[in-house]
């Protein structure tokens, strides 16, 4: 069988028709690949959070006098927003399993919207981009500038690194959304949506930890 036919056939197999592997069951190659990538990404975040913990654990004064305190209510709203977009993501997967294109397009669209609003929230938090709504000029204008203290630098490194992941997820999900709208998943092949979902849930999972370690502790 020519390689392109094999390749074509490989992509047409529905995940639940995948040959059962003794160790990994019906987990598709794409899913395993995404899990391994997420593990490596989790180690990147672990490194940053560990550096933060060691710096903070070893310092007598963490928040320098006069430095702005992080706004918990606002970021709690962002946390809730990401949790909501995790739910819409899993409902998009459910719609795909049931070959419901309209549902896929709706839930994927809401997921992309949730991610985009989260990014707008971060712009507001850093630069006060939406000060006309929130009446707050942002942390940078308040004096929390990159490099001014360990407190500031670890904050921007970790939340910025996570923000890049949210941006990546929004772009990634937009491509999946367009495919879904074009009927690419009408056959019920939920493999691509499930894999995109793994990345998006991981982004939510990491923010759950970042919100606690950076904002609440």
């Amino acid at each position: 069988m020519s390689s392109s036919a094999a390749h074509h056939e490989h992509h047409d197999i529905l995940p639940h028709d995948y040959p059962v592997d003794p160790e990994y069951g019906r987990a598709t190659l794409g899913k395993l690949g995404m899990w391994i990538f997420l593990l490596s990404d989790a180690f990147s975040f672990s490194g940053l959070l560990l550096a933060y913990a060691v710096l903070r654990g070893g310092s007598e004064v963490w928040i320098p006098k006069g430095a702005p305190v992080l706004g918990i209510p606002f970021t709690a709203g962002l946390t809730f927003l990401l949790i909501c977009s995790s739910v819409t993501m899993v409902l998009a997967y459910a719609a795909c399993v049931e070959k419901n294109r309209k549902g896929m397009v709706l839930w994927l669209g809401l997921t992309v919207l949730g991610g985009s609003l989260f990014l707008c929230g971060q712009l507001q938090e850093y630069w006060g981009t939406f000060a006309f709504i929130f009446h707050h000029q942002g942390l940078i204008a308040d004096g929390l500038t990159f490099g001014s203290s360990h407190y500031a630098t670890t904050f921007y490194c970790i939340t910025g690194f996570h923000g890049m992941h949210v941006l990546t997820g929004v772009i990634y999900l937009t491509t999946v959304w367009i495919k879904a709208a074009r009927g690419k998943f009408d056959d019920g092949n939920y493999n691509e949506i499930e894999i995109a979902g793994l990345f998006w849930h991981f982004v939510d999972l990491v923010w759950i930890l970042v919100f606690t370690f950076i904002y609440l502790l």
Binding site: E23, Y24, A27, S86, M89, G197
Partner: peptide, 12 residues
Amino acid sequence: FFMHLNHETKVL
């Protein structure tokens, strides 16, 4: 629940 680990094999 959301990343479906509950449905995966023990090895995964």
